[in-house]
């Protein structure tokens, strides 16, 4: 009883503080200086039409690298936690219906294609590596759901992931050597504004981020799905 009333008091205090903050929030009608710099100088400096992409990949590129590393660690820990599992047979009582099987065969390539579109066009349209990676991971989920026999090899995922991670870092170092600093995108020419091959290295970097995030997320999800085959055999 005492605990409950204490909780209610705590929550009331929290709500009151937040409400004060909310009440004094007016909303601005002008960009602050940093955002104004991004909006005016970003297109000339970076060459990406999507300002969010230019912030994520170039201005705050190191954050992205750290974040991808955190995801890698998460995937590794989840894999570790699920490794020592008792074997349990998955019984598929009714089987997958034929309609779902056929639809899956059509939809899985489409999903992968949409994912690739999202992360290659990250500097022109909304989207980018993280979203495209998530769509790729859901394509793998759909494949694992419909064709229950086929499992994606963990080895392949690991190879894709390490390859894209290493190339990501190498591109960053190339930026130090050839241009202004780590992860600078001006190692290639900026190209015409608004075309696919523009904005220097941003499409390549974002594709690598997309591949890496996609393989990590599908690793997490697939490990969570099937623990009996989840741990590697080697």
């Amino acid at each position: 009883m005492i605990r409950n009333s204490f909780l209610i008091l705590l929550l009331a205090g929290l709500g009151w503080i937040l409400f004060q903050e909310f009440d004094s929030f007016k909303g601005s009608d002008q960009l602050n200086p940093v955002a104004e710099y991004y909006a005016t100088q970003g297109p000339q400096e970076v060459g990406a039409a999507n300002l969010v992409t230019s912030v994520v990949v170039t201005y705050r590129g190191l954050d992205t690298l750290g974040e991808v590393t955190i995801l890698f660690l998460t995937a590794a820990i989840v894999g570790l936690l699920f490794k020592r599992e008792s074997n349990s047979e998955t019984e598929d009582i009714y089987g997958t219906s034929e309609i779902l099987l056929t639809a899956g065969k059509i939809l899985v390539p489409m999903l992968i294609l949409v994912g690739v579109y999202i992360f290659i066009n990250g500097h022109l349209t909304p989207g980018g590596g993280f979203q495209g990676g998530a769509v790729l991971a859901s394509a793998f989920v759909l494949a694992a759901l419909t064709f229950s026999g086929t499992t994606v090899k963990h080895r392949v995922l690991e190879i894709v992931e390490s390859f894209s991670g290493i190339s990501f870092v190498l591109l960053g170092i190339l930026g130090v050597v050839l241009a202004g600093g780590f992860l600078d995108n001006k190692i290639f020419s900026l190209g015409t504004f608004g075309h696919l091959f523009s904005a220097g290295a941003i499409p390549i970097i974002y594709s690598l981020v997309g591949l890496k995030v996609g393989s990590e997320l599908s690793n997490i999800v697939l490990v969570m799905k099937s623990s009996e085959k989840g741990g590697d055999h080697d």
Partner: peptide, 23 residues
């Protein structure tokens, strides 16, 4: 955004249905 919605609305429902029929 609508394209992503239209293509992903499918997966959640299938997972839930498969959970329901225990397969």
């Amino acid at each position: 955004v609508a394209v992503v919605y239209g293509i992903l609305s499918f997966i959640g429902v299938i997972v839930m249905a498969k959970y329901m029929e225990k397969s």
